[in-house]
Amino acid sequence: MYKIIKKRVLNPSVKSMEVYAPAIAKKAEPGQFIILRVHEKGERIPLTISDFNRDKGTVTITFQEVGKTTKLLGRLEEGEEILDFVGPLGKASELEGYKKVAVIGGGLGTAIAYPQAKKLHNLGAEVHSIVGFRNKDLIIYEEELNQVSDKVFITTDDGSNGHKGFVSDVLQQLIEEGNKYDLVIAIGPLIMMKVVSELTKKYGIKTIVSMNTIMIDGTGMCGGCRVTVGGEIKFACVDGPDFDGHLVDFDEAMRRGAMYKEEEAYSDHICKIGLGGN
């Protein structure tokens, strides 16, 4: 059992929890994730390690309540425990040796991108963070990003805060203005990562994206997380989740991500009317 030490509500649907898992905290690196199961009949779901504290032995997860498991998780309070918590899984992001990096986060992807921005900053890179949200009430991780970025740009789809429009527009503008990035990291919805990758390809800037596929084991056993990268089958859980954005087959990934849409809607519905493990 893994105890929730601290819980924060970041916006109406995004919560963050600091979980006591000393062995994982000791090894965790930016880019890695954990898989958890809330209760005995629960599903295994992957969540990125959005921060860790080796001294306190804690790992922070930040999640958006989109379906049954994330909602159940969101209902747990400080002091309560999560049944299973395994990690750190996946490869650590390779962040050494860059001078100037644009870190792009879409919605919840902002929390996932934060540890990367932090590590790059600590390694001495100039970090420009460009993060986008649907509206100003959904903004998360602004303060944290300010601390580890040389510049932070916030966009909202409706213009309720910052730049109106998409992160890719801001990135393009910054590049056009002469910013010479040697790396772009894009984390968020698949469509956002696709658009950013297409843009940076034009400019020939190396781009890393983080693939959030459907996963079960997280150890390379089931093949459910497979993505096509450069024409080859890769497993996001062990070969990733970071991949070269210019090589990822996004259209296939979007299709595979929707595989369980109907079942999820059904399960979540049951959860709401109270039959689920409430």
């Binding site: 009949k41 498991t69 093949g223 459910g224 689920g276």
Partner: peptide
């Protein structure tokens, strides 16, 4: 893969969905 199919069924008990949370198609 058979691994995914069987793991969903045996370990995650997808055959009891929606009593359990893991779906299978």
């Amino acid at each position: 893969t058979a691994n995914e199919f069987l793991t969903r069924i045996n370990l995650m008990k997808a055959y009891k969905f929606p009593e359990t949370d893991t779906p299978i198609k």
